[in-house]
Write a protein that binds this DNA or RNA. Structure first.
Lengths: 192, 192, 192, 192
DNA sequence: GTTTAAACGAGACGGTACGTCTCGTCTTCCC
DNA sequence: GGGAAGACGAGACGTACCGTCTCGTTTAAAC
């Protein structure tokens, strides 16, 4: 991330670019978004974008992080099901909202082909999320709410998995109503 | 899909194009794959590709389907865990193999932005898969192996979900070794 | 020319093709005329056209010749100026008429780059024209109407030259009214 | 013409493109000349050509004008025949030279179908030529060398006409040796 | 308050691939 | 078995963006 190197540059330009990218991606979609389009909307030169970011994905990631950095917390109410449900709904909202949904999918897509983007997403999104989630699950295990032998990381993945599945697989639809159903299936198991 | 309209055209050309696409996508990756590149390798004119397919994704989908149409079965050995594990491993292999892995991811990606591709994948991949899987699960419910109140479709999704999650989320890795762990977590539940 | 080889082929097809070419070139212009367009209008297969003609120019030439073969005569009224003027006006009319004008220009153009067309035009258009014209001029020389020492061929060329000049040079316009002026300048000379 | 708008652009690129066009048209002929070919030889991107010129004809016209802008003068030695002959030979040389001949014919051809090219040729080639020529002829008329009642413009056209005729009509050949013969026929008239 | 170095907007540049078009050849099917 | 119909390989068209590269012009810190 380049922020640290740019202490002297005009913060206004950076904000204008992030805003332009954030609004444009909603209007034209991730794949139709171009560096030239962002530059034009931001009233910036293309060179300015290339100076600070190495791809459009990293611009969007920075824009996204500014919008969602407060969502990664994991509350502890004492009841693990409530906390898990709250967090799953929070993620579901993030991934389906008009603002951030297609942006997030675009970034996931880009990360498939671009290792820099994958690493950046990992550092800025997934590591904080996993840390918060595994800590909460470990507490629940110690409290006897969850099975003690299971790997917290795999539990996190299993919990988020249906959300991403519905997001990614064509012709499925991610809805808030199905979240608690999936949660309870995971908690109780599907075997008789 | 155009196959039905092309009874009179040279099947050799179609095969050459699908083969070219299938081999090229392995070598250069989905996003670097171009229509021109496929045409060149196939010894075909670009117009021929555009005549029969409306995007590179649909070419790849057709190529993929030819390679995997036999994988969508769902055996019934009488033991539901065995059958589920076998199918999950089959899918895992498909999604991580050198041949079809990045091809499949590319198609998933494309389907995010291209409704035609999404529909085509649904018809050719997901509907057959879901049908086979839900039938097997319903049998297991009737046999008293699985909880009778659960929606077979959601169970299918839950079972496939961790596979897709590991496939799609950056910096995670889909391995055969984790498949039975996820399966048992889903079967038994994670709650104590 | 292919006519002699096609005794057995359907004359109706040939006529349909020539008619289609002749009418199409008026509507779309020489440079926008395509083999495919002619075939479509004629209700013929492209292969049929390629079988009998080697370029669209030769189709048009054949169509043109059918329309103008009677114009190449050179009457002898006994008065050389009258005969020359009549012929020059006849050519002017041919070159500026809606039917044949742009067709003829197209052929001239094509002949610049295509030796086959140049030869065909020479044989079918220019040789008959030159023969008729030089014969009439030679008679006039013998009758003491024209200077005896001049080359009849060059005289023919000089007479036709202003017509072609006006036809070909951009932003000049070929009009019947200027023909007699040019003729009299050539007859009398421009020197005082 | 775009020259005036491009003060800031790299003149080297413009020259490279004009040179490439000029040399390529000699090698492959006007009709086989392509924008892509020019771009490739010039080491330029296609977009650069499209940015400054709207057709290959206008590129060639600009290249031509650079080569011939000094040929359009019309000397005044006091003897009208000498001056006319000199100018006609100059034009003959221009139209038959290996460098500029087929290029010029190509432009004439293009001007038949493309009004922009016709206008550009008129402005850059014919208007200067006509102006210089009619002025010299008017002087000759005032000096009593030429008939005073004749239109200078039509005289100019008549003088150039045989040159263009020989250039354009298939299977005729423009030679320097015939130029003075045509000139003298025009000056003296062909009537006895 | 001036200097000066960077970051800036603007956009030309060499490229690549796009999707379309037409060419002239080749193939299939029907009459 | 000849012709319409049209698929085919080829390749140029004109467009859109890519990422790089000058250009002057702010602009803000250092002097």
């Amino acid at each position: 991330m380049p922020q640290q190197n740019r202490s002297r540059q005009n913060e206004k330009v950076r904000i204008a670019i992030l805003d332009a990218a954030f609004s444009l991606v909603r209007e034209v979609g991730y794949d139709k978004l171009t560096i030239e389009g962002i530059a034009k909307r931001a009233g910036a030169g293309k060179q300015t974008l290339y100076r600070w970011w190495s791809s459009k994905a990293l611009i969007l990631l920075e824009a996204l992080v500014e919008h969602v950095k407060d969502e990664l917390v994991f509350a502890d109410t004492g009841n693990i099901r409530d906390d898990l449900l709250a967090q799953m709904l929070r993620v579901e909202k993030l991934l389906t909202s008009k603002d951030t949904g297609c942006l997030f999918i675009g970034l996931l897509v880009e990360a498939q082909f671009n290792q820099d983007v994958a690493n950046a997403m990992n550092v800025q999104i997934y590591q904080p999320t996993y840390r918060a989630a595994t800590e909460r699950l470990a507490i629940a295990q110690r409290h006897g709410e969850l099975q003690p032998g299971l790997d917290p990381v795999m539990m996190v993945e299993l919990l988020y998995a249906p959300i991403y599945y519905r997001l990614i697989v064509p012709c499925t639809k991610l809805t808030a109503a199905d979240i608690p159903k999936f949660l309870d299936m995971i908690l109780a198991g599907i075997r008789l």
